[in-house]
Design a protein around this nucleic acid. Structure first.
Lengths: 126, 126
DNA sequence: TTCATAAACAATAATGATTACTATTATTTT
DNA sequence: AAAATAATAGTAATCATTATTGTTTATGAA
């Protein structure tokens, strides 16, 4: 049974207003403005819980620590290999790759995670 | 300038004969049969070097520690969400998704990493 | 073949990210 | 309002990985 908590509410609200996919550390530093005594463990626990509930998304990009996204609508991400920023990517549905994968696999494909990488506009111009 | 090392050779040879994408720890435990005094740091250093040289591939799946693949030919991977195994996936080229991504991004897409997830045959039957 | 140099090593300490533990506090139920 | 219990803050512990250091080994020149 899940009880309401003001800390969790604050974490969720913070993520809903950010579009840069912050890390747990960043969430912690910001939520501390409203809850000066919140502990990093509380942030991690709630980020995990919210992820499990499907209210936020966890991004494990393989470059640096995990990041979190308050936007759970289906979309993709691009990682700039120069500045490290993680940006949203509007792209048409590519779930057909699941079907492709299923035809070459003795089992059942349920989905995929894809991260694009490249250079963002700012880094290209420098 | 890179010098030959028997330890690195052994790590590479071990990976070339494994198809289950072992972790650094697993590589360490096995290479120790031939080099009882090899240290885990040496394994990590050489796995990083070989990855940088493009002689092996590192898989950061987001589930557990990084894994390594001695097969550098282009192919994909599927993670069984029940048993955790990581298997190879023969699938036709899907680099067209890079083009799709590029059309929705102000910058330059260089590539992508994709991990499929689902259930393997063994887990489906249990 | 010896010698100098620098890469690679083993051993170990340190770091970064995350999870676990525990006594206290907040939320919900009775 | 009291009892029950989930969530918290504070902290310790764990896991994966990287850094440090003094020694060994590979390589190329003398």
């Amino acid at each position: 049974m899940i009880k309401h908590s003001r800390q969790r509410e604050c974490i969720k609200k913070f993520l809903a207003n950010r579009y840069d996919h912050p890390t747990a550390e960043t969430v912690y530093l910001n939520v501390r403005k409203e809850f000066p005594n919140i502990s990093l463990g509380t942030v991690y626990r709630n980020l995990s819980l919210l992820t499990k509930l499907g209210e936020i998304r966890k991004l494990s990009t393989g470059m640096g620590p995990d990041r979190f996204d308050g936007n759970i609508s289906p979309h993709y991400h691009i990682l700039c290999t120069k500045c490290g920023n993680v940006m949203d990517l509007e792209i048409e549905n590519i779930d057909h790759i699941n079907t492709l994968a299923n035809s070459g696999f003795d089992g059942e494909i349920e989905g995929h995670v894809t991260y694009f990488f490249g250079k963002c506009r700012d880094c290209l111009e420098k």
